[in-house]
Nucleic acid binder design. Structure first.
Length: 264
DNA sequence: AAGCGCACCAACCGCAATGGT
DNA sequence: CACCATTGCGGTTGGTGCGCT
């Protein structure tokens, strides 16, 4: 077996002195981690190395599980539909990879980020080559233009959602969204407007109001399954525009991609 | 065949957010 | 409120494979 100097350096840096292994995972390590998660469930990552008998740090275990071992991970080429959605979401959200990945079933944030960096960045960012070594406005560097990215700030969301609360984003006079701290009680339909608008490909209008059900990637997955009376609620992931999509049905079955639409 | 450059992607690192005490 | 431990995220690195010369 040939071990390069770089490999040694990578595997035995500071963590190496602490006895922790680094670098590529072996089949045996994968099996141990899989067995551990199957037995104890996902989470409590600080306990995983000990429970699994792995000589890895908790971060490494978590990453390996989330990006590679998790059973529902979809591998292989991105489909046209996925690329389409990725482009739209990136235009709106910027490099919020976990948020974007949350809308692409089976894809991880790392997958999405890698795909963007290797396949899409050069193709869809005007002036990418020109700007890549320059210190420029972060939005401009990300989007190739002065697009303002909606960056919802996190707050304690679970509690608010459980009380059927939503926050409000008001677009200011330069089309920059900012959140208000006063929460209004809203109907679920209103809560979903923001995500509908997202998928409608709309640009925030001056003075327009968007209702946001929480923040960060968890937001959607944390929406309640039922309302306070116990009635089943429709998850926003199943709503594209005005169309309710059945489970396991492609969102874009009859959808034709029109790149000009986005003015990229 | 060897050398080089590039694309891809798994994995690492630093830091901010979150939760518990 | 402060502090600490843990989690999660995004940027970056580096190994590998492949095509070109």
């Amino acid at each position: 077996m040939i071990i390069s100097i770089n490999m040694l350096r990578r595997q035995y840096t500071m963590d190496g002195f602490l006895g922790l292994r680094k670098g590529t995972w072996t089949k045996e390590e994968d099996d141990l981690l899989k067995q551990c998660v199957e037995k104890y469930g996902e989470g409590k990552w600080h306990q995983v190395p000990r429970r699994a008998g792995l000589n890895r740090c908790r971060k490494s275990c978590r990453l390996r599980w989330l990006n590679y071992l998790k059973p529902d991970i979809k591998r292989g080429e991105f489909t046209m539909d996925e690329v389409d959605l990725l482009l739209r979401l990136h235009k709106l959200l910027g490099n919020r990879w976990s948020l974007i990945a949350g809308r692409l079933p089976g894809r991880t944030a790392n997958d999405v980020k890698n795909y963007w960096n290797t396949h899409l960045q050069k193709k869809f960012l005007p002036n990418y080559e020109k700007n890549k070594n320059k210190e420029i406005n972060a939005d401009k560097k990300t989007h190739g233009c002065d697009t303002k990215v909606i960056k919802p700030r996190p707050w304690t969301f679970a509690k608010r959602m459980s009380e059927n609360y939503a926050s409000t984003i008001i677009m200011d006079n330069v089309n920059r969204p900012h959140q208000q701290q006063n929460f209004h009680q809203k109907s679920l339909e209103e809560d979903l407007d923001w995500w509908e608008n997202l998928l409608h490909n709309t640009t925030p209008n001056k003075g327009a109001t968007y209702n946001v059900s929480g923040s960060e990637g968890d937001a959607i997955s944390k929406l309640p399954d039922e309302d306070q009376e116990g009635r089943e609620l429709v998850q926003p992931s199943n709503i594209i525009g005005d169309v309710l999509v059945e489970d396991n049905q492609s969102f874009w079955r009859d959808f034709n991609i029109d790149m000009d639409l986005w003015d990229l």
